Simulated scan of single mutants.
Amino acid sequence: MTVTQNSTLLATPGLVDAHIHPDKSAWGAPWMSRKLAANLAELIANDRDSQFDFTMSVEDRVTGLFEQAVANGTLALRAHVDVSPELGTTHVEGVRAAAERLAPFLTVQIVAFPQFGLLTNPGTLDVMAASLDAGADIVGGIDPVGVEGDMHGHLDAVFGLADSKGRDLDIHLHDGGETGLEQIREIAARTIATGRQGRVTIGHAFALCDESLPSLGQTLDLVAEAGVWIATCGLGADPVPNLAQLQQHGVRVVAGSDGVRDTWSPFGTASMVDRAHLIAYRTGALTDADLEHVLSLATKAGGELLGVPEIANWAGPESDTRLEFAAENLAQLVVDRPAPLRVIRNGREFTRG
Rank of each mutant, 00 (worst) to 15 (best):
Gly94Met: 06
Asp258Thr: 11
Ala98Gln: 09
Ala98Asp: 00
Ala193Asp: 09
Val58Gln: 00
Met272Pro: 10
Asn242Leu: 00
Pro122Ser: 03
Val335Ile: 03
Asp47Arg: 02
Glu67Leu: 12
Val335Pro: 10
Lys165Trp: 01
Ala112His: 05
Pro338Glu: 12
Ile171Met: 11
Trp229Thr: 04
Ala224Val: 07
Leu305Thr: 14
His277Lys: 13
Val254Arg: 09
Ala193Trp: 07
Pro30Glu: 03
Leu9Glu: 11
Val240Thr: 08
Leu169Val: 09
Ser50Gly: 09
Thr287Trp: 12
Val92Asp: 11
Glu328Asn: 07
Ala188Val: 06
Asp210Cys: 09
Ala237Tyr: 04
Asp221Phe: 08
Phe54His: 11
Gly146Pro: 15
Ser84Ile: 00
Ile192Phe: 06
Asp221Cys: 07
Leu208Arg: 13
Asp133Met: 14
Asp137Tyr: 11
Thr321Cys: 01
Asp290Gln: 15
Trp264Met: 10
Leu208Val: 13
Leu10Met: 06
Gly250Val: 01
Val260Met: 02
Leu75Lys: 00
Asp150Lys: 03
Arg96Gln: 12
Ser271His: 10
Asp133Phe: 12
Glu148Gln: 10
Gln115Gly: 11
Ile20Asp: 09
Arg322Gln: 10
Leu216Asn: 02
Gly307Trp: 02
Leu40Tyr: 11
Ser50Met: 03
Arg252Tyr: 12
Asn46Gln: 05
Glu328Thr: 13
Gln245Tyr: 11
Asp143Cys: 13
Thr351Ala: 00
Ile230Asn: 07
Gln218Val: 07
Gly284Ile: 15
Glu100Pro: 09
Leu173Asp: 09
Leu278Ser: 01
Pro214Cys: 01
Val308Pro: 02
Asp133Thr: 15
Phe54Met: 04
Trp229Gln: 04
Asp238Ile: 02
Asp210Ser: 08
Leu323Gly: 11
Phe113Gly: 13
Ser257Val: 08
Asp23His: 06
Thr74Met: 02
